[in-house]
Amino acid sequence: MTDTGGIDDRSFNASSYQGLLDAAKADPNITTAYLQSTTQSDYVPNINALVQRNCGIIVTVGFLMGDATQSAAKAHPTDHFAIVDYNYSPPLNNVLGLIFNTAQAGFLGGYLAAGMTKTGTVATFGGMKLPTVTIYMDGFYDGVQYYNQKHNKNVKVLGWNEKTQNGTFTGDFTDQTKGKEVTQTFIQQGADIIFPVAGNVGLGAAAAVKQNGNGVHMLWVDTDGCISAPQYCSIFISSVTKGIASAVKTVTLAAANNQFKGGNYVGTLANNGVGISPFHDFASKVPASLQSELNQIKQGIINGSIKVASPSQPTS
């Protein structure tokens, strides 16, 4: 069941549905269906409609459905649910929370951006101030600071401050015009790498970046931008990804084989649940030294020698 963005938002709703389709491809006994919400008031009736269809597993997409999924799961203890981007403490027996420590991947993205900027200013903004959004921005911010510390540089981050937890948000995940406006403002302030964490709104940012042309680039979010928005591949240095599709596929297959288990799944760099995508068009433009530093940092985060501190990090 998707949020208002629908299955073609090129972001987390699309990834979740892709996970279902992948599962159906892997196991021909699985049939899939989806419901799109038009407003937040649709969450409860939509979940109820799916419950009445006796689904093997119901995947709800997004943090905002936390309350609705919880009450449905309590009312129907024999049905199985998975929720993307949310977890319950204490965990529920019939819900698997799929959460992702994207601060780790955002850290790599921030380090990459700091290493690639020419103007010494990079920028990020979010769709709404939700933990699943700000966790990316925290990681990005930390990554830039880590680069500054290592290389004695002073790369500035616009749009987010981890200490005050304040920054720039467009207010939703659908209005591309706002994404364009915010991005143009950042470019005027000297930023040459933009990292939107805002679903469809990021497409507006990409339009602004492409329009501007000279030397401004982007990092895409959630999925590999060169696959989900190929028209903008030439401006994407890389993408900070979150393995929603593979996590949804895994839990769907498990449910189909009667191996469903409630609780929480946390995607990390270590289990490849989060990461940064290949550089595509930038493979030759990202210096080899920077690429090897990124690999070292990845190992450092996995073995714990580099700490990523984000208040939004999943704890379980």
Partner: peptide, 19 residues
């Protein structure tokens, strides 16, 4: 609106048709 939910759930007709 309420019927649109059921329509999408059982026939996968996009809910936009209701609009």
């Amino acid at each position: 609106h309420a019927g649109g939910v059921q329509m999408q759930a059982s026939t996968q007709t996009p809910v936009d048709i209701v609009t």
